[in-house]
Simulated assay, not measured.
Amino acid sequence: MNGLLLINKDKGMTSRSVDNKIMRHFKTRRVGHLGTLDPFAEGLLIIAINEGTKVLPYLENDTKTYIATFELGIETSTLDNTSEVIKKIDVPKLTKSEIEAVLVSFLGEIEQTPPQTSAIKVDGVPLYRYAHKGIKKEVPKRKVYIHKIRLLSYEAPFLEIEVMTGKGTYIRTLGKDIALKLGTIATTIKLVRTKNGQFKVEDAQKIDDIDNLRIIPIDKALGHLISIDVDETQKEDIRNGKVIMLSRLEPLLVATYERKVLAILERSSPQLYRVKRGFNL
């Protein structure tokens, strides 16, 4: 079995625990996931198995879409509902137009300070390890990109939004920053990932249905890249890691032979492509 599995992760599970279940069931250690979901979050988790793990680096820059619910007026130590409330303040009276105006201000490139409970490393150690010891570290701001954001509902103090983000965006931090512009504080109480690139949560399955999981083959997983069929001579050259000549302009191509993916090719110079990643299918 080689490819991707679309899992609709339940709240309370770690992304790693999903990996482990897949490993045990399919008796392989070559399993990984794309974009960790915190235990309190749910929704689409893309799992790669065997040769599918080679696909993950080519999906990392895909956009991700979430539906997030924030409770305004409270803040917890982790900015989600898994820890104690450390602060409470009043929530100002807010209109729909005021909220929408604030949401629009987050479109495009923004700066975020990752939460202290994130996996970002400082001095070689993940931040969450410092947090567990009660140590607070200075975390540099990072630039992230918000492609789309819209208000779904607001019934004080609960604010629900849909947001499409680029790589590395922390929704908990986004909620905190939105609340600050609204004149209050916030904690994320529900988070659902609904899309990841071309994949949707509607097509995902629960891990409890592990005996009937549908595999997305390598060619479909790389469907966002241009695919070309090569002849037998080119196939042998690719298998042997040789540079091949192609009259193409794309920086990356998926080379196939008789409907099987051979490799991802990278343009090294005009009309010349080298093997970037080979597949054993």
Rank of each mutant, 00 (worst) to 15 (best):
K276T: 10
L225I: 14
T14M: 07
K137H: 03
D237Q: 15
S268G: 07
N196F: 11
K54S: 00
K121P: 01
K167N: 09
Q205C: 08
E98Y: 06
V55M: 12
A48H: 04
L107G: 12
L79N: 04
D229W: 03
D229I: 09
A48C: 13
G183F: 02
L34R: 09
R150G: 00
P92R: 07
L45P: 00
I110N: 06
Y257R: 00
V102M: 08
V243A: 14
R259Y: 04
L222M: 10
V125H: 04
L182T: 03
P270M: 11
V243N: 14
V104A: 04
S17F: 09
V55F: 02
R239S: 07
G73S: 05
K21H: 06
R259C: 06
F279N: 00
G175C: 02
L44A: 03
T187A: 12
I207S: 01
E100C: 01
V125A: 08
R214L: 07
K141L: 05
S227P: 13
K88T: 10
K93P: 02
E160H: 02
L249M: 12
A255I: 02
E75G: 06
S105T: 09
D38V: 05
D10I: 12
T36Y: 01
R142H: 05
R267D: 13
T184Q: 14
F106I: 04
M13W: 14
A186Y: 02
T187V: 15
Y66R: 01
H25A: 03
P126K: 09
M23C: 11
L272V: 10
I264V: 15
A179V: 06
N81P: 01
M23I: 13
N196V: 11
T184G: 12
A41C: 11
S118H: 08
G166K: 11
S118A: 11
